Computed example of a mutant assay.
Amino acid sequence: MNKMNSGKLKQADLLTDLTEEIVDVAEAHHWKFHVFNSAFPDNTFSKETVYDKLYGINFTPQNCETISIVFLSNGKMVCPARIHFFASSENSEEQSYIYSNSVKTQYAGIQTHQVIILFFRYLSNKYFDDFELSDESGYWETNDEEKMKKQFQIYNRLTDDFALAFETLPAKEGEDIFTYLERLMKNVNDLQ
């Protein structure tokens, strides 16, 4: 399931506690993590938007993409990779990409996805303002475990069907990649 999140830290002096809590959870689950700076200078946010120094932490649950809880000096949550691509852009829409994160948790499984959502629910209440998260499984929005499980089943079946189609339907001679992929997707849709 993909998740998109954005927001800001409630207060600059909360960063150290936030980072320590995430490290504790990451260590308990044997997740890799990387701490950037764990305190803002003088425990205050900067009024300027500066992209060259990051605050917070990344962590990576097993079989999951890396999750960033990383902030700029102004306290706004950002995606470190998107800073690299869009910080110098003069296009305001492209610059806005910096302030959202996307994470695929599908391959980590239902239990890990649920732990991550519950963890974000806890963190958002304690540490974040203007926090938004969109969860394709619907668990963040509804807290409905059955709905989450059904959505995981749908995505897993779709992935399995696409893999099967890819393995059993080779490209035809002279068929370009787009035509081939369209044929694969039609086959997958026919299986549904």
Rank of each mutant, 00 (worst) to 15 (best):
I116Q: 08
V23F: 04
H30I: 06
T60I: 05
D130M: 12
I177G: 05
F120M: 13
Q111Y: 06
D190N: 15
L133A: 11
S73P: 00
K172Q: 14
S102T: 10
K53H: 10
V70K: 03
Q192H: 06
G138R: 10
H84P: 00
F85N: 01
I110F: 11
A39P: 00
M77V: 02
S137E: 12
E173P: 00
D52S: 03
F71M: 04
L9I: 09
Y55F: 10
N37Q: 13
K147E: 15
L54Y: 08
H84Q: 14
E175P: 02
P41R: 01
Q11E: 15
K3P: 00
K8F: 12
I98A: 01
Q95P: 07
K186W: 05
A26E: 10
A81F: 10
D130V: 09
M148I: 03
E48L: 08
R121K: 14
L133T: 07
V50R: 02
D190H: 13
K3R: 06
K8D: 08
R121P: 07
K126W: 05
I57T: 05
K104I: 13
Y55G: 00
Y139W: 09
K10C: 07
S88V: 05
L169A: 09
I154D: 04
S134A: 11
D24F: 15
W140T: 04
E48C: 02
N43Q: 08
I69H: 01
I116W: 09
L15F: 10
F178G: 13
C79H: 04
D190K: 15
K53F: 11
C79R: 02
I83K: 13
